[in-house]
Design a protein around this nucleic acid. Sequence first.
DNA 1: CCGTTCGAGGCGAACGTTCGTTCAACGTCG
DNA 2: CGACGTTGAACGAACGTTCGCCTCGAACGG
Lengths: 394, 394
Amino acid sequence: MARRYVSIKEVAARAGVSFQTASKVLNGGSVRVSAQTQARIIEAAKQLGYRPNTLARSLVRRTTSTLGLVAPDMTDVALAQVSVAAERAARRHGHAVLVGHLGTGGEDGAEIVRMLIERRVDGVIAAAPQLEENAEVAELLRRYVPAVSLHSVPGGGVPVVGSNHRDTGLLATRHLLSLGHRAIGTITGPFRRRVVRSRLHGYEDALREAGIEPEEDLVVEADWTPRRAAEATGLLLHRKPRVTAIFVHNDTMAIGVLSALAAAGRRVPADVAVVGCDDVPFAPYLVPALTTVHVPLAEAGEQAVELLLRRISGEPGHTAGAGTGEPGHGPSAGPGEARPGTPAGPGDARAGERVRLPVRLVIRASCGASPPARVITGPIATPASPATPGGEDA
Amino acid sequence: MARRYVSIKEVAARAGVSFQTASKVLNGGSVRVSAQTQARIIEAAKQLGYRPNTLARSLVRRTTSTLGLVAPDMTDVALAQVSVAAERAARRHGHAVLVGHLGTGGEDGAEIVRMLIERRVDGVIAAAPQLEENAEVAELLRRYVPAVSLHSVPGGGVPVVGSNHRDTGLLATRHLLSLGHRAIGTITGPFRRRVVRSRLHGYEDALREAGIEPEEDLVVEADWTPRRAAEATGLLLHRKPRVTAIFVHNDTMAIGVLSALAAAGRRVPADVAVVGCDDVPFAPYLVPALTTVHVPLAEAGEQAVELLLRRISGEPGHTAGAGTGEPGHGPSAGPGEARPGTPAGPGDARAGERVRLPVRLVIRASCGASPPARVITGPIATPASPATPGGEDA
DNA sequence: CCGTTCGAGGCGAACGTTCGTTCAACGTCG
DNA sequence: CGACGTTGAACGAACGTTCGCCTCGAACGG
């Protein structure tokens, strides 16, 4: 049961050299050590099953090759994608990932971040919407450790990777409008989330573009779960029996919406059209197949890691390591939002503070449009709507 | 951007004591240091924003308070539950979690485990079905680090936490039989997975109990995804048009099955009854609401952590740590499939090697049974089937 | 008044590395 | 034939802790 780890000294002893020499060979490679000795050391290491102790290594190198990930509750497949992608990307770059899952409230965020800091992670990825409101976490991230967030961070100072969520609302609603719908309801996530407000802005702006004044009664708040979404749909149907289309803020809730609609005897898409958000793997297999706005979640996780790693290695950019990234990437990339003053465009001083991943509409059956799987991409130019200021988020 | 961490020496200096004294105070608490001095040290630490460097601590304590988690691909909500629950449980016990997600093949398992070992995790939780076949991983876990698995481990020596999956097959199939179905098909996960074979055994045994000889044509292999499940269903319908019920190996695939059934114009449950597996959060909101076998995934994750932590702290049990070095437990390898001699019951000498979490049937609408949400629990006595003894797996 | 005890805190060592410097031996060259 | 380079390897120090033992001085008992 000898679970003791063998140290480099034992390897060295067996090879008959000083442990420092062994160290040299075992890492660096061929630095000033005869081929013979090298072979002996390597052989000894293999025989003994030597595994370097990264703790000791980190202690002297002052870097752990470990990233921290603050993850959400994760009852939603969509969010899980981010974490998985991020971890994979990190590992590809030789970094391990220390993870902490928030409670549903997200109030334990600071605790998690402190844990990560004490473990001296090289950087932190904040991948939970709940963190949006957590000023304490934001402060910790600003002060103690390089970080990248997938959601807007109170007080700024932490670069953000993600999509423009106003675009999602815009895309979904415009599509519904183009199909002739006028009474379009929406089942949202919690209002206090920026994502939600952004999607709502897109929804409203699209409506106004079409000359329709948004109605409060058509907007029902839920909490991302199918359960609450089903309830919300019931309420919506009650308040506005004549609604003919629904924009749902995520695909998981769409399941609940579909369920409630079925329970109410409304056919989809014949009576009511439905458009979701995220484009999770099962979306094409709902009945009817769900039309939804694809949000590149996995890609966001990956990009977040890349950006974070660049920052850590102290790549230039005004924001100490942030920038130079994404030079003129994407079609119109970054500046999705109408924000006259601070375009955050490429070349802007704050470039790199924000990486934008375009969303796109995936047309399936639930909206009643005929052709299968057409795709319309965002971000989109907003004709005339300086109304909603910049702060969208991922 | 001064990201430098303050060390305990700086705290000590500021408080005017030796750093060892500061150390004493900052951990142990009231150990032979005057209240005054303590206060001074604590104050200094606070002012400086001192965060202990757990690397150094771990180095001397020879324990990292970190657990490794080998997680699956995670495109399935059900599996994500395990990871989240495990991480939460670990944190509750003051442990952090280092996570590695397998690729779809799971061939990178050893690489991940090695990474965890080099980082000196105190223990490893193997929570991926893909690991079932990975002998290299099993070997690493046996040799280098205490571990607990959620799935059977080749060669044994690693305790397993999970449900008896024969029971799931039994429960689902018996239910369908009790509803009068005789032509019952099943859409499975990959055959090479034990879980799958176990569920299949349950399915077949239930059939035989009812005097029905299982037919190969009624069994179609898929890969856990809705996509392949839909295809498989199409195939099943083609081969056996008269099938009146389907047992699906997980809820995510059930989405695909429902979709294919709808495409084929079969009504559920009127024409075909469907029973799933797992009981994920959205199951009640599918149309129709999915009858499914509830598998306590989150609980399994939690229990795995508890068990692992007990093992680490060297709690007794005959298997002291890891089976006192696998004496003569070789080929008889864990209480695997058909091994009449070793029932591994409670009170058995090898108790602790296997924790069983009962599954239960949750009756909803997709099977056509009338009462809403009845529940039938397992594990179940098998009337006359000594064929498949205990050895199912999680 | 001296020896003992006890409370408070200092000190050395160790944990397993990495990194830069030092050292010995052996040619080689002028 | 001695100064010098090279080459190969050893060595010392440091990373930030924890832990156990040691010392010091004051208080206390006899």
